[in-house]
Design a protein around this nucleic acid. Structure first.
Length: 841
RNA sequence: GCCCAGAUGGCGGAAUUGGUAGACGCGUCAGACUCAAAAUCUGGUGUCCGCAAGGAUGUGCAGGUUCGAUUCCUGUUCUGGGCACCA
C-alpha cells in the first residue's frame, strides 16, 4: 500500500471524536490561551477554499500552543442571522430557519473534513433562542445605560433618572422633571441612552414597498427589478458609539493590531479639532439669522469665498430666494436619488446657488451660500465654509462656477491648485495678517469665542451606529411601543422569540415583515417593535459566549470571563476593520463599565488574513453562433465573453468534452477553433463567487489529496495576511512532500495484507547521528520561529527542506535520543492536523 | 473621491533589523529506471552576451538618501479591500 491518507485521516478523526480530544475545560492548571476565528455567515454557496485559510492558521497556532502547555480555547460557531437567508426566502419560498439550518449542516460537514481541533461542544449559533436571548438581554443593558460624561463610562440610566429627580440638569429643574409627562421624560432619556431610537434615512424603494440595503442598490436603482430608490426618513434604533469615540481611540494603544488596522479605525473615528462658527445670513425670506459651520481651519476665515450647505438640510428651504427655487428643487430631487457613496465618489462638480449670503463676521464681506452634494448632512453641522486657495475640492468648485478666489497665502498659492499648507504666512487676513497659519488657528478660535460667534469644537467623523433593520431574519427587539413611548421588556421574560412566518414579505409602509403578524404585534401592553437587530448584534459579543456556551442564567459567568479573559489571537479578514471590530470593542467597553466583565478590549492581538480571490476563466463565443474561439484568436472575431467553470479548465486549457456537458448541456453543440490543438481560456482575478464560476470547493481537494495536503498547501501559498488568487496547480508539490515524509518511515509494500493504510515499516530505533540531529534541531528552531510570527508558508518550506535532507542522509530513525518523532509527530501534526507517525502522538 | 494594503523569474513566493536577490514549491528542459506509461530518482532553469571561463543586467514606474536599497524617503501607475443596511 502507498501513503493512504484517506484511511489514516479517517482513523485519527474518528479517534479524536471518540476520545473528545479537543474538549476544553474552564478549569486547568495550565495557563490559558484563547485563539479565535471570525465565525462565518453560513451562506448557501457553502465553504470555498478562501474560508479555511484563516481557520487553518488559527488551528495550527492552537495546536502549537497546546503542545507548548497551554489550555487552549479554540471554538467555532455561526453568525446565522442575516440578509441573504431572507432574500433567499423571498425568492424561493424557503423559510430562513430551514435554509440556515441546512447551510450550517453543510458547513459543518465541510469543516470536519479539514481536521480542525475545535471544541464543538461550545458551538454558538446566533439565530438560536438560547443565544439571542442574551443578545436581547445585552440590548436592554445598552438601552438602560447612559454615558456619564464626568466618569467617561456607562452607568445605569436609573442613576440619571435619580439625578434628574433630585437635581435636574442644565435643561430643566428637578421640579420641572417631576411635572413632565411620561413621553416628555422618555424624550429626554432617549438623548442619553446607549441604545436609542431616533429618525434616520433609509433607502426606500416604492415599487418593492421595502427598505433596501446598500448592497441591494446598484447605480441608484434596486438590484431586484431595477426600480428607483430614494432616501426616506424612518424611525430607527441606534447605538451611541460616538460616546465611546475617545476610548475606542485610546484603546488602540493597548492592543496588538497592525498599524494599518489602527490607522483605518483611527480614520473612521475621524477625530478633529476646530471651531463651530456662526455666520449672519442675508436672505430674501429673512427667516434664518445664522448659518453654523464647522471648520478645522478657522485660521483661513478671511479666505472664505463661498459657503456650501448639504442639500438635504431643511435650512435650504428657508434661505433660498425665489428665482432659485426651481433649480434648487430639481437639484434636491437629484441628490435624493443618489447614495452617499456616489455623492462622495462623484468627480463631476454639481451645485446650486441658494440666492442667500452669509456675512463674514470680521470683514463684513458677503459670501454666497451654495448647496452641493459633496457636503454631507451627517458630518459636523452639514455646512462648510469654503476656502478655495486651501482646499482642493473647494478650489475645483470655485473654478467650475467662476467664484472669485481670495488668496490668503501669497506665493504658496499658485493660482492653479489649492495648497492645504499650515506653514504659510497669512495675507489679506485682517487681524491674522503676518501670522504663521498653524499659530493663527489658536488666535482665530480665541477671537471667535471672545466675539461670541462660535466656539472651540472637537468633531468626529464617526456617527452613531444604525441598529435596526426593516427585516425578518434577525433578533426581535424586546421593546413595545405604548402611545409612541418605548417600553422595555423585563429581563426575566426573555427571550422574545422570533415568531414563525409562512411567507416573508415587507410590512406596510416599509416596516419590517413582522408588522404583518398582527396578533404578535398587538399586545395588551402596546405594539411590538417590528424591526429586528442587524447582523452585527450577535457578532458583537459571541467571543464571550464561547467561554460559557450553555449557561441559561447569564450571558457568560464572570468566573468564565475572568478565566479566559481577552482573546489572545483573533484571526479574520480586514473587511471587518471598521464594522464588526469597532462594534465588539464598544460592547466590550460597555460590559466592562457595567462590571459584567473584567477587561475593556476584547481582542489582545489581531491577525488579518488576506482574501483568496478567484481566478476566473473565460471562453469566447463568436457572436450569434455556437462556435468558440481560443483566447489567442478572439480578436479576429466579434465575441461574447462567457465565464466558464474553473473546475473544467486545466490551467488555461479547456476540457472541451466537459464543457459540452456543462450546465446541463447548454453548450452541447459547441464547436471549437483551437490554437496548437488546444482551447486556451482567458483569465481574470475576481472575487471568489458562485456566479463567476470561479469557486473551488475544498471537499474535492481533500478527497483527492487528503486534509493534510490541503492544509499545508493553503499555508504554502504565501503569507497568510496577503491576498492572492487561488491556483490549485502546485498542490501536487505539497502532496509529494508528504509522500516523501511517509517514505522516511514506510516503504511501499507488495503485500496487500499490510493494512491500516500504512505500508511496510522501515524505521529503526537506532540512535541518530550528529548530522541527523543537526537537521532535526535546526528545523525545530526554524519552525517554532515561523509559527510564532505566523509565517506558515516558510514553516512548510522548512519541513520540506528537513525531509529532503533526512532523505539524503538515508535517515529512517524514529527515536533515540532526541527523536524524529519530535518533529514529525508534534510540529508536523500542528501543521497537518494529524500525525503521520503511527505511534499515535 | 476618501482611507488602508500590495506589486520580486513562465507561476506561488523567500530574503525576520539597510548587507551575496530568487530559499522552498510549481512548471519546464535533459537524463536514469521501464517494452511503454505512471510513480520515483539525478541534474539544469531570472534575462541578455559567450563554446566556456566570465561579463552585463535585474525586485511595477520616475527620482532621492546611503559605501551599500526588494527593504528607507518623495512622486506616480496599476491591482485588491473598506467607505456606515452584505457579512
Amino acid at each position: 500500500m502507498e501513503y493512504n491518507f484517506r484511511d489514516i485521516e479517517k482513523k485519527w478523526q474518528d479517534w479524536w471524536k471518540a476520545n473528545k480530544v479537543y474538549q476544553v475545560s474552564n478549569q486547568s492548571e495550565k495557563p490559558k490561551h484563547f485563539v479565535l476565528d471570525m465565525f462565518p455567515y453560513p451562506s448557501g454557496a457553502g465553504l470555498h477554499v478562501g474560508h479555511p485559510l484563516g481557520y487553518i492558521a488559527s488551528d495550527i497556532y492552537s495546536r502549537y500552543k497546546r503542545l507548548k502547555g497551554f489550555n487552549v480555547l479554540h471554538p467555532m460557531g455561526y453568525d446565522a442571522f442575516g440578509l441573504p437567508a431572507e432574500q433567499y426566502a423571498i425568492e424561493h419560498g424557503i423559510h430562513p430557519a430551514v435554509s440556515t439550518a441546512s447551510n450550517i449542516n453543510n458547513f459543518r460537514t465541510q469543516l470536519d473534513k479539514i481536521g480542525f481541533c475545535y471544541d464543538w461542544e461550545r458551538e454558538v449559533n446566533t439565530s438560536q433562542p438560547g443565544y439571542y436571548k442574551w443578545t436581547q438581554w445585552l440590548f436592554l443593558k445598552l438601552y438602560n445605560s447612559y454615558f456619564c460624561n464626568t466618569e467617561q463610562k456607562a452607568r445605569p440610566i436609573a442613576e440619571l433618572v435619580a439625578k434628574y429627580e433630585t437635581a435636574g440638569c442644565k435643561h430643566f429643574t428637578a421640579a420641572q422633571w417631576q411635572q413632565f409627562s411620561v413621553a416628555e421624560k422618555e424624550e429626554w432619556l432617549m438623548k442619553r441612552r446607549l441604545a436609542y431610537s431616533a429618525y434616520g434615512e433609509v433607502n426606500w424603494c416604492e415599487a418593492l414597498g421595502t427598505v433596501l440595503a446598500n448592497d441591494e442598490v446598484v447605480n441608484g436603482v434596486s438590484e431586484r427589478g431595477g426600480h428607483p430608490v430614494e432616501k426616506r426618513r424612518m424611525r430607527q434604533w441606534y447605538l451611541r458609539i460616538t460616546a465611546y469615540a475617545d476610548r475606542l481611540l485610546h484603546g488602540l494603544s493597548t492592543v496588538d493590531f497592525s498599524d494599518a488596522m489602527k490607522e483605518m479605525q483611527t480614520n473612521w473615528i475621524g477625530k478633529s479639532s476646530g471651531a463651530e462658527i456662526d455666520f449672519k445670513v442675508k436672505s430674501e425670506q429673512g427667516k434664518i439669522e445664522t448659518l453654523r459651520v464647522y471648520t478645522t481651519r478657522p485660521d483661513t476665515i478671511f479666505g472664505v469665498d463661498f459657503m456650501v450647505v448639504a442639500p438635504e438640510l431643511d435650512l435650504i428651504g428657508e434661505i433660498k430666494s425665489k428665482e432659485q427655487t426651481i433649480a434648487d428643487d430639481e437639484y434636491l430631487a437629484y441628490v435624493k436619488s443618489r447614495s452617499e457613496r456616489e455623492r462622495m465618489a462623484e468627480k463631476k462638480i454639481t451645485g446650486v446657488f441658494t440666492g442667500a449670503f452669509a456675512i463674514n463676521p470680521f470683514d463684513g464681506k458677503e459670501i454666497p451660500i451654495w448647496t452641493s452634494e459633496y457636503v454631507l448632512a451627517g458630518y459636523g453641522t452639514g455646512a462648510i465654509m469654503a476656502v478655495p486657495c486651501g482646499d482642493e475640492r473647494d478650489h475645483k468648485f470655485a473654478r467650475h462656477f467662476n467664484i472669485p478666489i481670495t488668496n490668503i497665502i501669497g506665493a504658496h498659492y499658485n493660482g492653479e491648485e489649492a495648497n492645504p499648507t499650515k506653514e504659510a504666512i497669512l495675507e489679506n487676513s485682517g487681524f491674522l495678517d503676518g501670522m504663521l497659519m498653524k499659530d493663527a488657528i489658536e488666535v482665530a478660535i480665541e477671537k471667535i469665542e471672545a466675539a461670541g460667534i462660535g466656539k472651540r469644537k472637537i468633531n468626529y467623523k464617526m456617527r452613531d451606529a444604525g441598529f435596526s433593520r426593516q427585516r425578518y431574519w434577525g433578533e426581535p427587539f424586546p421593546i413595545t411601543w405604548k402611545d409612541s413611548v418605548p417600553v422595555a421588556m423585563h429581563e426575566k421574560d426573555l427571550p422574545l422569540l422570533l415568531p414563525h412566518m409562512d411567507e416573508v414579505k415587507p410590512g406596510k409602509g416599509g416596516e419590517g415583515p413582522l408588522l404583518n403578524l398582527t396578533e404578535w404585534v398587538n399586545t395588551p401592553e402596546g405594539q411590538r417593535e417590528t424591526s429586528t437587530m442587524p447582523g452585527y448584534a450577535g457578532s458583537s459579543w459571541y467571543f464571550l459566549r464561547y467561554m460559557d456556551p450553555k449557561n441559561d442564567n447569564e450571558f457568560c459567568s464572570r468566573a468564565a470571563s475572568d478565566y479566559w479573559g481577552q482573546v489572545d489571537l483573533y484571526i479574520g479578514g480586514t473587511e471587518h476593520a471598521v464594522g464588526h471590530l469597532l462594534y465588539s470593542r464598544m460592547w466590550t467597553k460597555v460590559l466592562y463599565d457595567l462590571g459584567l466583565i473584567g477587561f475593556d478590549e476584547p481582542f489582545k492581538r489581531l491577525l488579518n488574513q488576506g482574501m483568496i480571490q478567484g481566478s476566473s476563466r473565460f471562453v469566447y463565443r463568436i457572436h450569434g453562433t455556437s462556435q468558440f474561439v481560443s483566447a489567442g484568436l478572439k480578436d479576429q472575431y466579434t465575441v461574447d465573453q462567457i465565464h466558464v467553470d474553473v473546475n473544467i479548465v486545466d490551467g488555461y486549457e479547456l476540457d472541451t468534452e466537459a464543457f459540452r456537458k456543462w450546465k446541463k448541456g447548454e453548450f452541447a453543440d459547441a464547436s471549437f477553433l483551437l490554437e496548437d490543438g488546444k482551447y486556451i481560456c482567458g483569465a481574470e482575478v475576481e472575487k471568489m463567487s458562485k456566479s463567476k464560476f470561479n469557486t473551488v470547493n475544498p471537499d474535492d481537494l481533500v478527497y483527492r489529496f487528503g486534509a493534510d495536503t490541503f492544509r499545508m498547501y493553503e499555508m504554502f501559498l504565501g503569507p497568510v495576511e496577503m491576498s492572492k488568487p487561488w491556483d490549485t496547480k502546485g498542490i501536487e508539490g505539497v502532496h509529494r512532500f508528504l509522500k516523501k515524509l511517509w517514505r522516511l518511515f514506510f516503504k511501499l509494500s507488495d503485500s496487500p495484507s499490510v493494512g491500516g493504510g500504512e505500508g511496510e515499516v522501515i524505521w529503526t530505533d537506532a540512535p541518530a547521528t550528529d548530522a541527523e540531529l543537526k537537521v532535526l534541531h535546526k528545523t525545530i528552531k526554524k519552525i517554532e520561529d515561523d509559527t510564532e510570527r505566523f509565517s506558515f508558508n516558510t514553516g512548510v518550506s522548512s519541513f520540506m527542506i528537513c525531509v529532503n535532507e533526512l532523505t539524503d542522509l538515508k535517515c529512517h530513525k524514529k527515536r533515540n535520543p532526541a527523536t524524529a518523532r519530535d518533529l514529525t509527530g508534534s510540529l508536523c501534526t500542528a501543521y497537518c492536523g494529524r500525525t503521520l507517525a503511527p505511534a499515535g502522538q
